[in-house]
């Protein structure tokens, strides 16, 4: 009964409208993306690079987001100025946004429902791993440079779970004398984990050190030999956890995080819609989504990459960038509420 009532409000009506309008474009985009993935896949022999297939996941995701957000803007009369039926809805609909908030929530639910099959089934079909593993990025305490005349670079690990591999990808500086690649020894809680298997001579050179599963609280990188100074910028030191998570839960979470660009775009559009007509509102939605998805501003791109690479999404490294997007979207909503009152007076 409650569902029936809510289904007649802005939330339910917009959700159904978005699902109705969005399923076919999303399906077609997914089929096209998968076909292109199969036809113009890079030549890698029997190996797979699922991270490189992320554009084929992003494409239908963006189509679903764009369809839902534009449908909501076109469908709900208070989203833009001068829409047919706007005055009726302004009088009948309660709430500071006159139903725009509910319409946005409905559009977001529809998008989530449309994109869950993409982040689960399509991602697997594109080669994403069937399980997801936490990749914990470490930030150095104090100075991040490792050289012969510098103290060790140390990291504190607040996550107590067991890890099985360390990945280093530092920036390399100019050698202090004739070039001798730098050898790094790794200590966990004061105990040696071993020397990195390859010395470092190039910037962003990736070297992995596998070790038997163990948890740790403190990691130290010690300079053993070499003349190349190494700089451990954020993202240069990663610990791979031992425990694997189910990829389905990672897919559900990815679909949830992919709602953020739509939320921000629609929030900005509802703000603009107080003074602007529908074409401007649609332009704001489309450009907002473009900047956050294709251009890569915000958490969408790292989320899709992490999903395809099999990195577990429920980590602070993924959620931290979401805070900025949530703040922008929330601020736009609050401003829209305040301005709507002023415009009505």
């Amino acid at each position: 009964m409650k569902f029936g009532l809510s289904a007649r409000g802005p939330f339910g009506l917009t959700c159904r409208r978005c699902l109705h309008m969005g399923w076919l474009p999303t399906l077609l985009a997914a089929v096209l993306a998968f076909t292109l993935h199969l036809t113009i896949a890079p030549a890698l022999g029997e190996q797979h690079a699922p991270g490189a297939a992320s554009p084929w996941l992003v494409f239908p995701m963006v189509v679903a987001s764009l369809t839902c957000a534009v449908t909501a803007a076109v469908f709900w009369p208070t989203f833009a100025r001068g829409r047919p039926g706007q005055q009726w809805v302004e009088r009948l609909q309660r709430g500071p946004l006159r139903g725009s908030g509910g319409a946005m929530a409905g559009a977001l639910l529809a998008q989530w429902l449309l994109t869950v099959p993409l982040t689960t089934a399509l991602a697997l079909a594109l080669g994403a791993p069937s399980s997801a593993v936490t990749h914990l990025q470490l930030q150095p305490e104090g100075q991040p440079v490792l050289a012969a005349d510098r103290p060790p670079v140390s990291f504190t690990i607040r996550d107590p779970q067991p890890f099985t591999e360390l990945r280093l990808r530092p920036l390399a500086g100019l050698p202090t004398s004739s070039l001798v690649p730098t050898i790094v020894e790794v200590f966990a809680d004061g105990e040696s984990l071993g020397t990195m298997p390859a010395p470092f001579a190039e910037t962003r050179q990736l070297v992995r050190l596998p070790f038997s599963s163990r948890s740790m609280h403190r990691l130290e990188l010690v300079h053993k030999a070499g003349t190349v100074p190494l700089v451990f910028v954020p993202g240069a030191v990663t610990l791979r956890a031992a425990t694997a998570h189910w990829s389905l839960s990672n897919g559900l979470l990815a679909a949830l995080l992919a709602l953020l660009p739509s939320f921000v775009a629609m929030a900005l559009a509802s703000w603009c819609g107080l003074l602007a007509g529908l074409p401007t509102v649609i332009a704001v939605v489309a450009s907002g989504l473009f900047v956050q998805t294709i251009v890569g501003l915000g958490p969408f791109e790292p989320t899709m990459l992490a999903l395809m690479r099999g990195h577990w999404l429920a980590t602070s490294a993924v959620f931290q960038p979401c805070a900025a997007s949530l703040t922008v979207g929330s601020m736009a909503m609050i401003l829209a509420m305040l301005l709507r009152r002023r415009v009505r007076r």
Binding site: P42, L44, Q47, A49, G51, R169, R204, G296, R309
Partner: peptide, 16 residues
């Protein structure tokens, strides 16, 4: 992005 966070195989695929 692949050079920053991916592995060499991913970077090679992206280069292709």
């Amino acid at each position: 992005e692949a050079n920053r966070g991916g592995d060499p195989l991913e970077a090679f695929a992206r280069a292709q």
